[in-house]
Every structure is written in structure tokens, then in C-alpha cells.
């Protein structure tokens, strides 16, 4: 570079982007930015990288009680979120026991070629993590907060303890309900295999005679803004939309899919990429495809 004014700041743009400058250094560098195109260019190139670092930390379950505390303190109220209310149809019978084990024609192959043990470990962790998040637990949380407000009476304290125990049981029951589908002896499954556009993707749909379908996917490549993954039951007449997938940043997604009456399983399943919002009939490339085991 020719500008002697730049010399003392050489290499500082990366430290600036990484947040590694002291207060004084930062102020002085920002002043320099106003006159140095080179440093602006380097900071511009590196800032998106450091911005992306916020995604480097793995997501974690927060303590359930934190929700009520945070929301109460900020807004003075702890709503059951619409998301959770909308979940009621699938989760209001979390303890529905699996039916008697039946001999299954499309049971898990004993030596699956698809997702391996690590995939299942990951999937079960996702499910376990999801356990405490259901609407029912949220509703109980809300009641706890209300009760905490009337803690003056012994009766309320007793009821509070009972509720807290119920929360623990409900969280566990929700988790069990999902795991019951996934690990049940009569579980049937379809493995979906990544197509050339997503060679590392894999997915598995699991259901039994009485349950909704649990759908687990991993290795989904990131999509450009405006595109979305859509899951289909590919029936002889026409494909039927099953769900939209919103993968986690690591490319994994877990869904509970309601199986429509019109869909007779096992059926071929596919994931295509479609415009945001999804489409009534598939138009995009197939990223994953799975056919029932013979």
C-alpha cells in the first residue's frame, strides 16, 4: 500500500472483525476506516465471517422455568404461545400407549443401509431435547407462575409442588410419546436417500398403525432465501404434501407429520425444493427419495 497513514493499522481489520481490539484501539481504527479504502474492504470481507460465528455455538435447552421468568418480567404476563396452542392436536394425548405389538411387514431391516447409529443417536437427542417444550408443559408453567403469585397460603404451596411434579411427568410423557413411535416394536419406516443434489442428506420416516409419523432428516444443504424443503407422499394419483421442513442450521430437521386419511402407507416419499410457502404439487428438484422396503 502507498498510504503511509495506513501503516500503523496494517492487519488490524481482521482483529477489528474478530472483536479483538481494545476500546482505544477500536476507536482509533474506526477513525482510520473513514480514510482507508483498503481497511474498509478487508473489514467488509471479514465481518460476515465473524457474524456467522454466532451460529458456531450448539443450541441448548434452557431451563423450563426461565421462560416464565423472562416473559413475566418483561411483559407482566406469560402467554401460552400460539405455536404451542396449535400443537394441541398432536400432543393432547401424550400418554396414548402404543398398540399391542403386531407383526410388521415393513419392519426395520435388521441391517439398515441408511442412517447409521450416529444418526439415531442424534435423532434421539433431538427428540429428548424437544420433550420439555410441548404446549402442555407450557400451560402448566403458566399455572405455576399464577400460583407463585398467591404463595401466601399453604394450600397454594402444596398445589404448586404437585404442579411442578406434573410438569416433570408431562415433559417425560411427551418425550415418551415420540420415542414410542420411533422405537415401538410395530414401527414401520421408510428411509429416504439423498439424491445427487444432496448426496449427504438422509432421512427416515417412522410411524405405526395408530400414530402420527415422526420424520427425521439430516445433512440437508442450506437453501437460498425464498426456497423451502417440502415433503411429499407420492401416491399413484398425485403427490400429497406432507409438510414443509425448516432445517436447523446444521441441516437437520425433525417433524411430526399427521398422516392424512387419504394416504395409505407405506408409500413412496420425497423431498423437493419449492418456493417459500410450499406448493400444492411438486415443481422443484427432488433432493431425497425413499421407497417402501419390499
Amino acid at each position: 500500500m502507498n498510504d503511509p497513514r495506513h501503516e500503523p493499522f496494517n492487519g488490524l481489520a481482521s482483529l477489528y472483525a474478530a472483536g479483538a481490539l481494545s476500546d482505544a484501539e477500536r476507536t482509533s481504527f474506526e477513525t482510520h476506516l473513514e480514510v482507508c479504502r483498503e481497511c474498509v474492504a478487508e473489514a467488509r470481507a471479514l465481518m460476515p465471517v465473524t457474524h456467522a460465528l454466532v451460529y458456531a455455538a450448539p443450541p441448548l435447552d434452557a431451563p423450563p422455568a426461565l421462560r416464565a421468568r423472562v416473559l413475566q418480567q418483561i411483559t407482566g404476563t406469560v402467554p401460552t404461545s400460539p405455536i404451542r396452542a396449535g400443537a394441541a392436536t398432536s400432543l393432547d394425548e401424550p400418554m396414548r400407549p402404543p398398540e399391542e405389538p403386531a407383526v410388521s411387514s415393513t419392519d426395520t431391516e435388521s441391517t439398515p443401509r441408511g442412517p447409521g447409529a450416529l444418526f439415531w443417536l442424534a435423532a434421539s437427542l433431538v427428540i429428548a431435547a424437544a420433550g420439555g417444550g410441548g404446549w402442555y408443559v407450557a400451560e402448566l408453567d403458566r399455572q405455576i407462575v399464577e400460583l407463585q403469585e398467591e404463595l401466601a397460603t399453604t394450600a397454594a404451596q402444596t398445589e404448586l409442588m404437585q404442579l411442578q411434579a406434573a410438569v416433570a411427568r408431562a415433559a417425560s410423557a411427551e418425550r415418551d410419546a415420540v420415542l414410542a413411535i420411533v422405537t415401538g416394536p410395530d414401527a414401520q419406516q421408510i428411509n429416504l436417500v439423498g439424491q445427487p443434489l444432496a448426496p449427504r442428506a438422509e432421512a427416515r420416516a417412522v410411524w405405526n398403525e395408530t400414530s402420527d409419523m415422526v420424520f427425521l432428516a439430516s445433512g440437508l444443504p442450506p437453501l437460498p432465501a425464498g426456497d423451502v424443503y417440502q415433503l411429499w407422499f407420492v401416491l399413484p394419483d398425485a403427490p400429497v404434501s406432507a409438510a414443509l421442513l425448516d432445517p436447523d442450521p446444521d441441516g437437520s430437521a425433525t417433524l411430526i407429520v399427521e398422516i392424512p386419511d387419504a394416504v395409505a402407507l407405506p408409500a413412496t416419499m420425497a423431498i423437493t425444493v419449492e418456493p417459500a410457502g410450499g406448493v400444492p404439487a411438486p415443481t422443484g428438484d427432488v433432493y431425497l427419495l425413499g421407497q417402501p422396503a419390499d
Binding site: 404461545s81 400443537a87 420433550g131 411427551e174 409438510a243 425433525t254 417433524l255 410450499g278
Partner: peptide
């Protein structure tokens, strides 16, 4: 991922009336 968002995703897709998570 919360189960709530999981279910939300499923409902959105199934209903066909959907909003991309970011728009939402």
C-alpha cells in the same frame, strides 16, 4: 428445536397455507 416449532412446521405444510419461518 422445540417440539412446538416441529409441530408448527408440520401444520403449516399440511394446511398448505404456509409462511416461511423467516417471514413468520
Amino acid at each position: 428445536m422445540l417440539l412446538g416449532t416441529v409441530i408448527d412446521g408440520a401444520n403449516v405444510g399440511w394446511g398448505g397455507a404456509a409462511a416461511d419461518a423467516r417471514v413468520a
